[in-house]
């Protein structure tokens, strides 16, 4: 990052959105530098989708302001739309059109020139050139997502908004998908991607964590972990994973979660945490302090804020 004069692709302040009496997005401020991948995290119902929809003009914020790609997100929503690719949470291409037809439709809607060439190129890039005549509905989950990504980027947007693009997709397909996202970012595209997967969060340049409609953590993965002030102990040995229930009730323990046969116990008060695990500092258990993972941090963050059940 260049703190001197950052070139913000997304620069929005104090966004608010309510549905009825539910305050879904509460004073959210997000800045993402051009060409970077920002992971957008938070529990279900925390306002991630609503925020993404406000950024691409699908929803009008109740208050707040800002710019995307230098255009006002409210007054110049049309200009933002033209330069933004948006991929919805649910597969939302036409299942009864073929792969090629879906791409051609998008190409026409955006009034693209050299349509045939662009569609062919996208199919080539996807590796779907030989299956161009296949109905989109018959693709597997991973391929569907890659097709949706190809469609969302067909008009060469400068900003890409992805709403949980890899939910329900197998690990190999997820990796391929993320390789493509990184390739796109390398070409200068800015990406804001919401996800629940920690490995994906770690693949982002930076992270924004939203909970209960509020942005509560921002920065690189390392910054977020450091800012959490979390201390984590790793316990192993036969039956260590079964200590979770007892430990989570102990004072000073904020989270205790089993990882296979091992357990991670985290808290922000070192003295209290050590006191809590003291009774178990005996055979057959072995304890060691480890750097907290992003997941430890997020579970702690989630535990602190009330889940906003939709």
């Amino acid at each position: 990052m260049t703190p001197s004069s950052p070139n913000w692709a997304i620069d929005v302040h104090g966004l608010n959105k309510s549905f009825g009496d539910k305050h879904v997005v509460n004073d959210v401020t997000i800045q993402v530098e051009a060409g970077r991948i920002c992971g957008f995290l938070g529990p279900n119902g925390s306002g991630k989708t609503t925020t993404l929809r406000m950024l691409c003009g699908l929803l009008t914020p109740d208050s707040g302001s800002g710019q995307a790609l230098g255009f006002d997100i409210i007054r110049e929503a049309e200009a933002v739309k033209l330069r933004t690719g948006y991929m919805t949470q649910k597969f939302s291409l036409y299942e009864d059109l073929t792969i090629a037809e879906n791409l051609q439709f998008t190409a026409r809607v955006y009034g693209l020139d050299r349509r045939r060439e662009r569609v062919d190129k996208a199919l080539e890039r996807l590796g779907l050139a030989s299956r161009r005549g296949q109905l989109a509905g018959t693709l597997s989950g991973g391929w569907k997502q890659r097709l949706a990504l190809a469609t969302a980027t067909l008009h060469e947007p400068k900003l890409l908004l992805l709403d949980e693009p890899t939910a329900g997709v197998d690990p190999k397909a997820r990796r391929t998908f993320w390789d493509e996202i990184h390739a796109l970012a390398a070409e200068g595209l800015t990406v804001l991607v919401s996800t629940h997967y920690m490995d994906e969060a770690e693949r982002c340049h930076e992270i924004a964590y939203i909970s209960y409609g509020r942005l509560i953590a921002r920065g690189t993965a390392a910054q977020v972990i450091a800012a959490s002030g979390l201390i984590t102990f790793h316990g192993e040995g036969p039956g260590a994973d079964k200590l979770g229930h007892a430990l989570s009730k102990a004072p000073g323990v904020e989270t205790a979660a089993a990882f296979g046969a091992a357990i991670h116990v985290s808290g922000s008060d070192r003295a209290a945490l050590e006191a809590a695990i003291l009774p178990y500092r005996r055979e057959p258990y072995r304890w060691s302090e480890v750097p907290p993972t992003l997941e430890d941090v997020f579970i702690q963050l989630m535990g602190r804020s009330q889940d906003n059940i939709p």
């Binding site: 003009g57 739309k81 033209l82 948006y86 919805t88 939302s92 998008t106 955006y110």
Partner: peptide, 12 residues
């Protein structure tokens, strides 16, 4: 089918 959301995100 959810395609409306995609349609709305385009300049249509």
């Amino acid at each position: 089918r959810g395609t409306m959301e995609t349609l709305l995100a385009t300049p249509l």
